[in-house]
Simulated scan of single mutants.
Amino acid sequence: MASSTDDLGLPLLSEGKVRRIYRLPDQPGRLLMVATDRISAYDHILSPDIPDKGKVLTGISLWWFDQLGDIVPNHLISTDVPEAVAGRAMVVEELSMFPVECVVRGYLTGSGWAEYQDHGQVCGIPLPEGLQDGSRLPEPIFTPATKAEYGEHDENIDFDTLVTIVGPQVAGELRRLSLAIYSRAEQIARDHGIILADTKVEFGARADGTIVLGDEVLTPDSSRFWDADQWAPGGANPSYDKQFVRDWLTQESGWDRHGDQQPPALPAEIVAATRDRYLEAWTAMTGLDDPLGAAATDADRITPMARVVVDVMPKPEILDPQGKAITGALGRRSHEGLTVRQGKRFEITGEGVEDRLEEIRQIADEMLANTVIESYDIHVER
């Protein structure tokens, strides 16, 4: 999408079915990601919106970023956002996103169930005979998909195809990280009485090649959550996700999703029930009694992940060839009066990391900086 501006007064970088991404001109390398209240199904944006859905998606993602911080870094910088989008937006790193959806399935359902019925496998992975819709798999499986443009369909691919898209090393790391995220999240969800049937995550890369978790994570839009007490293979499982809307569209509305007509408007009772399901998912997972109140009055109560940042720089008296070369190049390009020094940035995450600054200072002394020629600064970011 071409860059434009809207009522936020910021350059609009892209707009998907649910999210808008803006550039922050005064923060290079940072983006504003806003979750709208729109809901989509079968590659159509539905109407009307689901009230508060964007806040739910943002709040759940923030909570999960905190739970997964020791597995993989994520793109969250802060929740200090314009008042107009408070509670439904976050400032994130700009990454080079991999053009694939990283899907992990712990249970057989959805497109995986359809593929299993036809071929006895999912994305090239053979599965045991006799499984039913909703069966728990012997072990979680990584089933990537191509990331389609708006209006097109994602397509499941096998691992070899993923390798041709991102290369063998990245493909292997995407699989490892995706399975690790699912394993952690599945156990946490189970402890809260919820089954995580499957989930979709997205990753990008920093300039130095570090793989980072991006977009949303483990929300009802990107995951299939079932009530553990009501789960049973072989039948419909009550869900906390937008399957509720999909079922109404395909079973009650009379709409043919394979036809050319746009889907009908959602009735008021479906809108209200869908909003309730999203809020139930948030409350059940996080334990917040008033999640919307938490989002509206104090973003920190959603528990964004804290990280300790260690910035390492050569001491002023130490020759810095790379910085000197860049400084000279700037002068030749008429950028006078600027001096560049090259440094390194380390991000440290983990439980209670903001309370372990002395320990991290010791780590910086011993491993992160050569204190003979380098100095460092330590600070906490959320």
Rank of each mutant, 00 (worst) to 15 (best):
L249P: 03
I211A: 06
Y278N: 10
G214F: 09
D260S: 13
Y278T: 12
G287P: 02
T286E: 03
Q261R: 10
D215T: 08
H258A: 12
A232M: 12
A265E: 14
L249W: 09
V271S: 07
R206L: 15
Y240V: 06
W226H: 00
T286Y: 06
L266E: 11
R275C: 10
P220M: 07
P233N: 05
T274D: 07
G254K: 04
G234M: 08
Q261I: 01
H258L: 14
A273D: 14
R257A: 04
F244R: 03
E216I: 06
A228W: 00
V245I: 15
A273Y: 01
V217M: 02
A228L: 13
G209I: 02
D241T: 07
W255P: 07
W226T: 01
T219R: 01
G234D: 12
W231R: 09
L288G: 00
D256S: 10
A265F: 02
G259T: 12
W226I: 02
S239V: 08
F244P: 00
H258S: 14
Q251A: 12
V217T: 14
A265P: 02
L288W: 10
T283W: 00
Q230M: 14
V201H: 05
A228F: 08
F203N: 06
D260R: 09
P220L: 08
G234K: 09
P264G: 07
W255K: 07
G214N: 07
F225N: 00
I211L: 14
S223V: 06
A272Y: 11
T219N: 05
D276E: 15
W248L: 09
T286C: 05
R275S: 10
S253N: 10
I270Q: 03
Q251W: 08
A281H: 01
I211T: 05
R277C: 05
E202H: 10
T286D: 05
Q262I: 00
Q243D: 11
A265Q: 13
Q243V: 13
F225A: 00
Y278M: 11
G204F: 06
